[in-house]
Design a protein around this nucleic acid. Structure first.
Lengths: 349, 349
DNA sequence: CTGTTAGCGCCTTCAC
DNA sequence: GTGAAGGCGCTAACAG
């Protein structure tokens, strides 16, 4: 493997000039630069990454922290796959690597992050699955490492973030259901302390209040991760004093289980219970009736993350670094899983 | 960010001793080592990756090449998510990073790989989605970079690989169908020149011949990537002179589309046409009738990949480096999508 | 415009 | 068992 001195010797010039030529630094004769580039191709010289990293004090790589295990089901793989794909595409064109750092829920995320940061293996970090209180963010704020969060948090003061508009999704869901005549709406929340659940809940509550309804009287529950769990939830809902006529969710991976649980309980989506699911899912498209849900351009989100994290590095404060971060809207996709509530009960009453 | 000299000064010893202590090198007093480790914890010292890489001439990171775009749908994200998760878990415990390198089908995979290798950013490479003729493998064989393939190939002579037993899956599928009385079996192959398709086909052919049937008379087709495509295929199958009573597949992402296409054409899986799908998919579990398919422990596969790639690096030739690589079996999971063929036609004839 | 030189942080060899 | 010193490959600062 040829090093920069080999190339310099080969050309009878100094390593400094070679370096400047290869790095597009000013102060090199155009002809010299051309010769260097050509010679580099001839002898197959490519700068050693480690030497460059050491000297520059930077690694040209971005960490992407993903929580695995309990927190993030493999079903989310489709989402992350697309995000990582797009981020890498954008970053690699600019000389950056994306290093995916899966942190198991068994590990302590904060310690894991601290270790990774201290190793100096990344120039910036993108973290996901933010929680309402998130010590990772406090840590990153302390260490001064540039970071971008996919999701908001109440920790760490102000920091750059990009987030889906969960409150907006909740408000739109409520609006659609209210317009159909629903009044008793149950809300499914995530199992974790993920911040997204709070935004979703707050969006729900404010939309209900604005309609003159009391959100406190509505049933809220943690969306389970299994078919059995969903069966329990469905039974709980249908036997409740305040049996809801609609349910809305902010988790997408478990829609098929919900449908199976409903079927098992003899509750037909749309007819007996309106259902608004969260993210549109290719695999769920064949569900019958088609779930009303929300669409987001995941590829665009991935690109946006890449753009913003590089903006952070270059000091050119991107939009995510501004006071309020970037809120990504989601598009409502109607489906037969929502319909006017069954009137039989009220008529009889 | 503290460096090794800070730590040495703090302890009033030399950097050499600190380094030896931290790297578990012999020739350090046990007490000294303990002091060093404790002090490192106190002042939060972690060795800088670039300095270490430069000195050791290695990067301690492993590349994981994934094809994106046409070749690999986001639906495969679940698979890769799990594999990457497990690989990272294993590798990080041994001081290695996993760098995911998504290569778009739009890019030239060979050129992409050549670039990445030349940058010297990884000590070894894991490649996926191998093709029958795969110039990436030829390239890697040339460059001397240790690599492990998830999948086999006819290129590049002998190389370390791990692969699912596609031939075994095909043979088992044929056996199950023959036992039920099927004789006319259609085979769905991948759209690409992926090596897995050939192994699958060869397994199918040999199993048919062993049963005294002529595989050449069977219909084979490329499994489409869309619902519309599947509708065409299903129509083709049911209108064929040699209408098959069963179909078997080696792609898993499109099962739901197949089911929808069958429904649209009024063909009920199991009753009118037996269907053996490929990999068991959580999201497909609710399909009715449940698809007969094959199960594989993806997490274990991920771990295996990590173990073997490290074995390559350490020269301790793992099993994948042996002459025949590692063949991972898949477990047959029966389902109501297979049943005896409809007898009406033959009885009438 | 080009050459020289120092040093990024670490590990390893050689002395002691 | 420990300290001192050199150099991995590169780039940036300074000299010419």
């Amino acid at each position: 493997m040829a090093d920069i001195r080999d190339l310099a010797r080969y050309l009878n010039i100094s390593t400094g000039t070679v370096s400047r030529a290869l790095n597009n630094r000013p102060g090199v004769n155009a002809k010299t630069r051309a010769r260097v580039l050509e010679a580099a191709g001839e002898i197959g010289y490519v700068a050693n990454q480690s030497g460059r990293n050491l000297r520059r004090g930077a690694t040209n790589s971005i960490g992407f922290l993903v929580e695995t295990g309990e927190a993030s089901k493999p079903e989310n793989g489709e989402f992350f796959f697309t995000v990582v794909d797009q981020m890498t595409l954008y970053l690699s064109e600019r000389g950056y690597d994306l290093v995916v750092l899966p942190c198991h829920s068994a590990d302590d995320p904060v310690e894991y992050l601290a270790r990774t940061v201290a190793r100096g293996a990344v120039d910036a970090m993108v973290i996901t699955a933010t929680r309402r209180h998130d010590r990772r963010i406090e840590l990153l704020a302390q260490t001064q490492l540039p970071f971008l969060a996919l999701g908001r948090s109440e920790s760490g003061g102000e920091f750059p973030w990009i987030d889906l508009d969960f409150a907006g999704v909740a408000r739109r869901s409520v609006a659609e259901l209210l317009a159909l005549g629903h009044r008793e709406i149950a809300v499914g929340l995530p199992q974790t302390e993920a911040m997204l659940g709070y935004h979703y809940l707050w969006g729900f509550q404010s939309a209900m209040r604005e309609a003159g309804l009391d959100p406190e009287k509505c049933i809220s529950f943690r969306a389970p991760n299994s078919e059995a769990g969903w069966t329990d939830v469905v039974e709980m809902l249908v036997t409740s004093d305040r049996r809801p006529t609609a349910v809305m969710l902010c988790t997408d991976a478990t829609t098929v289980w919900l449908y199976r649980a409903l079927e098992r309980c003899g509750v037909r989506p749309g007819r007996d219970l309106s259902v608004v699911t969260f993210r549109e899912h290719p695999q769920a498209s064949f569900l019958n009736p088609a779930p009303a849900c929300f669409r987001v351009d995941v590829a665009a989100l991935g690109r946006l993350l890449a753009v913003e994290v590089l903006a952070l590095l270059n000091g050119a404060n991107g939009s995510a670094g501004s006071e309020q971060g970037i809120l990504v809207p989601m598009e409502f996709v109607s489906g037969a899983s929502i319909a006017p509530p069954p009137v039989a009960v009220e008529q009889r009453a």
